[in-house]
């Protein structure tokens, strides 16, 4: 496999959720989305609530129903495979979820949680234990963490544990669903650096879902912007997050306040002007 060939290739993906009640139209969460991730690459997926960004991540993981389109991993269709085949994919695709408090089973020790994916692959107990030590070290946690329960750790530490679990089987791709949005500012920066370091050390690829343009910019090589179940802009990370073309991305960028009173005053004024311009453009488009 060469670097140019995508690791993950999503084409015209449609995901629909049935709505309870007879004869109701299903809810269309994704309306034909295409995206690709190359080996070792981080692709950021940014959007607001209800944009479908999380659904796209879950569809790649096999946790959301694929209605139309295709999801290919290393050239193989994985959108509609059986549960058994999906289980085998666990060596290749892993996940880190948003909420560090509910993504770990509160009644299992850290070692039990981390060993779970290894035990499934019939790694012996002794080897699993050794691997758990290595993983904890890799994410910057002490070895004695293994025997403790999740409730003894802070949010940032739990997220490190979740990253360790994702790394256990040395996957080629990790889907990261808002992995830092529940964390405090200073913790968030450290966890993002950990993501970066791990990628540089192991060459794993990330599909990194976030609502925060700044977070995505910090970590992503390429960025896709989602809005109402569609990708509205997709390209170079720096370009999309600093000089976007699509009006929605522009609105998104201008809405985030800057941590400087004078520059924020400037941005506020720019935003007001931009919104006015977009409104006029919409009016003209409507009139035409």
């Amino acid at each position: 496999m060469t670097a140019a060939e995508p690791l993950l290739e999503v084409t015209d993906l449609v995901v629909e959720y049935p709505i309870k009640g007879f004869g109701r139209k299903p809810f269309r969460a994704l309306k034909g989305v295409s995206i690709d991730v190359k080996p070792g690459e981080c692709v950021g997926l940014v959007g607001e609530s209800g944009s479908g960004k999380t659904t796209l991540g879950r569809a790649v993981l096999g946790l959301a129903p694929v209605t139309e389109g295709s999801v290919k991993f290393k050239g193989r269709e994985i959108g509609t495979i059986s549960r058994r085949e999906r289980r085998e994919l666990s060596e290749d695709i892993q996940v880190v979820f948003q909420d560090p408090y509910t993504s770990l089973n509160p009644s299992l020790t850290i070692e039990q949680t981390l060993a779970e994916p290894l035990r499934v692959k019939n790694v012996s107990a002794a080897d699993a234990r050794k691997r758990v030590r290595t993983l904890l070290d890799q994410v910057g946690l002490p070895a004695d963490a293994a025997q403790r329960l999740p409730r003894e750790f802070s949010g940032g530490q739990r997220q490190r544990i979740a990253i360790a679990r994702a790394l256990a089987l040395e996957p080629a791709l990790i889907v990261c669903d808002e992995p830092v949005s529940a964390l405090d500012l200073s913790t968030q920066a450290r966890v993002l650096d950990l993501f970066k370091d791990i990628q540089e050390a192991t060459g794993v690829a990330y599909l990194f879902v976030s609502h925060d343009l700044a977070v995505v910019r910090h970590l992503s090589h390429r960025v896709a912007v989602m809005y109402h179940g569609e990708i509205v802009e997709y390209g170079d990370g720096d370009k999309v997050t600093s000089d976007p073309e699509h009006p929605y991305t522009q609105r998104l960028l201008m809405a985030a306040p800057v941590a400087d009173p004078d520059r924020q005053a400037q941005r506020r004024a720019d935003r007001a002007r931009m919104l006015e311009a977009q409104r006029e453009a919409d009016l003209q488009a409507g009139a035409a």
């Binding site: 496999m1 060469t2 670097a3 690791l7 190359k38 080996p39 070792g40 690459e41 981080c42 080629a172 970066k196 990628q199 540089e200 050390a201 192991t202 060459g203 794993v204 690829a205 700044a214 910019r217 910090h218 970590l219 992503s220 090589h221 390429r222 170079d236 990370g237 720096d238 997050t241 600093s242 800057v258």
Partner: peptide, 20 residues
């Protein structure tokens, strides 16, 4: 306003190989 990650090609080809 921090630095962006940049594109994959010039940030590193070596780990791509490791991944591949």
């Amino acid at each position: 306003d921090g630095a962006a990650r940049g594109s994959l090609s010039h940030s590193s080809d070596r780990h791509v190989n490791a991944g591949g």
